[in-house]
Every structure is written in structure tokens, then in C-alpha cells.
Amino acid sequence: MSSTDDVWTSDDDVRPEETLAELDRLRTRTRTRTHSGAWLPAALVALLLLASSALYRAPFAQINSLTIDHPYWAGLPDEQRHPVLSYAFWFVAIPLLVVVTAAWYARRARQLGVRVAWPVFAATGLGVLLLLAIVAAVPKTKLGSDGMTADLPTWWWQGLLTPLLPVAAAVLALAWAERSPGLAASGLWITLLTVWLCGTLPLGHIPSLVIGLMDGGTSSYGGQLALRPGHYLGLMALPLVVFAVVRGARAWRLHHA
């Protein structure tokens, strides 16, 4: 960082509005430099979400019948290639994400001389993942693809036993550490999609209440969006991708200014 103003060392009387204006400039300058590294963890989380589409048997194609294992170790309630592969993916990828993020922030701290509260991001991601592993340590239950035979009251919260929740929680923690409304919105978006997609069956089910409201109050049996897990994961990752591109470009300009 470089000093551009001598208002801090000057002995002259400074009017309160000048002091406030200078504090504002100092705050903006420090914030820009301190938080210009948020694009990398955001990009890595987006990459993780997009890469997880490879865990499904048919991530993009429409299929007529499918078998869903519970908990949803792939992330979304759809047929996965292999539960162990899905389990291993998240339990390796999330700690790896934390390690890479830690190295990134350590390097930035050495170069810039400022630290952000990234351990909150690491602790939240790993903590919720660990909690998920503990809560999900129950015998597996087969769920029908039509949802007609499931015990609905317990089904809803059990559907939330998905590795997407630690990801959403980690993004929200990162938003707090980086003081970023954009990341907070991304985290809420992932949470919202996860709760909707994993709390209902079949995948993309639209509750009758929503359809009823759209129809002008008439009753309905509900509906379903004809999208596949790959599409939903793309939608989840989209705000993070936009954030990473915008912030990455800004950081690049700052670095080369």
C-alpha cells in the first residue's frame, strides 16, 4: 500500500467534513485492497458445484425412470453414478478447497500486509460437512421417484442431508469475512435452491400452492420444471461465476494500475 495523502501527518486544523471525507477515502482504499482476493474462493466454489454434475448418471438428459439413494451424497435428489464416489468427491473436494483458499489468503497476507477472516469460511465449510456426516450416519432409505410412498413430514428435513448445504454455509461465511453483499446473495441463492430441490420430490417439483397462485387461485396438483441436475447446478453457480469474473477483473486492474 502507498500513502497518497498527508492529511494524517499535517498539523494544520482540518474541518470535520474534510476529516470525514478523508476517512471515507481511506476506508474505500483499504477495503478495495483487502477484499480484492475474494474472486478466487468464489470461482473455486462455482467450479466445485459445476464439477459435481459429473456425479449423476444423466446430468443433462431427460430419463424415464431413476433410483434415488438417500442421503443425497451427489447433492441433488437424482440418480448418482455411485454413492461412494459422490461421498468421496465432497469429502475430498471441500477440504481441498479449504487448503487452496488458506494458501491463497496466506500469500495475499504476505504480499499486502492485511488479513481477512478466512478461517471463518474454513471452519463453517468443514464444520457443517462434519455435522452432515454425523447426522447422515443412519441406514439408507430408498425413496420413490414419484414421492408418493415417502413419509412426507420427515422426508422434508431428511432431504436437507446434502453436501450442498455445507457449500451454501461456506459461501455465506465467506460473504461475512469479505463483507460482500454479492457473495451473501450468492450464498442465499444456493441455500434457497438447495432447500427447494432437496426438500421436495421429484426434482424441480413446484408446490401446488405456487401453481395455484400463478393460476389465479385455482387448485392444482403442482408441477415440475423440466430441468436436470446439471442445469440446476449451473443455476446455483451462476452468481458466483459472475462475482468471480467481475471481482477478478477489478483485482487485475488494481494489480496493474
Partner: peptide
């Protein structure tokens, strides 16, 4: 400056404020 960071190095703060 400190309110915008979790921690700040002495040298960084010194340079920032001149």
C-alpha cells in the same frame, strides 16, 4: 484502516498513513 481488515501489518499501516 484496522476496521476494514481482520489484521494489518505494522509496515503496511505505516506506509498507508505516511
Amino acid at each position: 484502516v484496522l476496521s476494514e481488515t481482520r489484521e494489518c501489518k505494522f509496515g503496511t499501516l505505516r506506509d498507508e498513513l505516511g
